[in-house]
């Protein structure tokens, strides 16, 4: 096992060396002038975090598609915006790209009033994938359908406790948007992350949990919780029997999406090279296996579509941030 992987590493090293040399020797073809050196993929969170793990898997899947490797650089801090600031200041040559999500590229810049670090300081390369936002209840829950729960919540405001991650994160927006749409009020209990929220829920200190399936899949298998309703556009492939909030008449659609951005002003041809490479990487077996293990869904969008998506996403996140009163004035 180890020998195999050592051989693989050696072969990859040798292959990239050969490629590196051959790229330098070959007559210039359209693809060969970029990239000619490794690309730096900046992650705004520490190694080992959710964003980091996916960035590494993505860089790994892109190996062999681009003639040069993609190297991860972690720049944690300031809710991911430290990395934004770093990438904005880098040359716009396509050799520095950023792994971004809604929190780091829209929500935190809005809340902290840093418009220069928002997504529009960058050029979209591709939206990559995402995780659906679910609401879970215990198997012995007194509510069998979302309608029953809403009826109870209307009669008993603030009685249903929902554990989730910090206020200002997507989890909290799902809960809030559902409250607004259904005219109910829930008792939202924020945590530092999905793990602690799951513990509060498993310990019986909350009736519901909001979050991603990836963190709790085995708890669902172990019958400690059941998926109740999902905040996606259509039914999820993971649990197709579970209804969406939207089909029940509440327009609550949120997902944790992750994407690749380049500093604004990067040549479109280089962005196109990167977009194609990531698109191919998403079709690779290694990425599909990884993404499937993590219960994530493909959300690929090319630069133009992704830009349109970002404009809409910013508008609707701005509304909810203002409703929560999170913005600095």
């Amino acid at each position: 096992m180890r020998q195999q992987s050592m051989v693989r590493v050696t072969m990859i090293l040798a292959a990239s060396l050969v490629l590196a040399v051959s790229v330098g020797v070959k007559p210039a073809s359209p693809q060969a002038d970029f990239p000619t050196r490794p690309i730096t993929f900046v992650v705004g969170f520490a190694p080992g975090g959710g964003a980091d793990v996916f960035a590494r898997a993505l860089a790994d899947a892109a190996k062999g598609i681009l003639p040069q490797p993609i190297a991860i650089e972690n720049r944690p801090g300031a809710g991911g915006t430290a990395a934004n600031a770093y990438v904005v200041g880098r040359p716009t040559d396509g050799y520095t790209i950023l792994f971004a999500h809604a929190g780091s590229s829209i929500i935190t810049p809005l809340i902290t009033n840093q418009p220069t670090l928002k997504w529009d300081a960058f050029d979209p390369v591709a939206r990559i994938h995402g995780e659906e936002e679910w609401l879970f209840v215990r198997p012995d829950s007194q509510w069998k359908t979302p309608e029953e729960l809403v009826a109870f919540a209307k009669a008993n405001p603030r009685r249903i406790r929902v554990a989730g991650s910090a206020i200002g994160g997507i989890d909290s927006f799902v809960a809030l948007a559902w409250e607004k749409a259904a005219g109910i009020s829930l008792q939202y209990i924020p945590h530092e992350g999905g793990g602690p929220a799951t513990l509060t829920f498993l310990g019986g200190n909350a009736e519901m949990l909001v979050g991603n399936v990836s963190e709790v899949f085995q708890h669902i298998e172990a019958k400690r919780m059941v998926p109740f309703v999902v905040a996606s556009e259509g039914r999820s492939a993971i649990f197709p029997n579970v209804p969406t909030l939207k089909e029940k008449g509440w327009d609550v659609v949120y997902a944790q999406w992750r994407s690749v951005l380049a500093p604004a002003g990067t040549p479109p041809s280089r962005i196109a090279t990167l977009t194609v490479a990531f698109q191919k990487a998403l079709a690779s077996d290694s990425w599909k296996r990884f993404n499937g293990n993590a219960k994530a869904v493909d959300l690929y969008l090319g630069p133009a579509d992704f830009r349109r998506f970002l404009v809409n996403e910013e508008a609707r996140l701005t509304r909810i941030i203002d409703e929560l009163g999170l913005r600095r004035r």
Binding site: G48, R56, Q218, H219, N293, A294
Partner: peptide, 12 residues
């Protein structure tokens, strides 16, 4: 994270 990167899903 090391487990996840090696394709092992942690959980109960």
């Amino acid at each position: 994270a090391a487990l996840i990167l090696h394709g092992i899903v942690p959980g109960p």
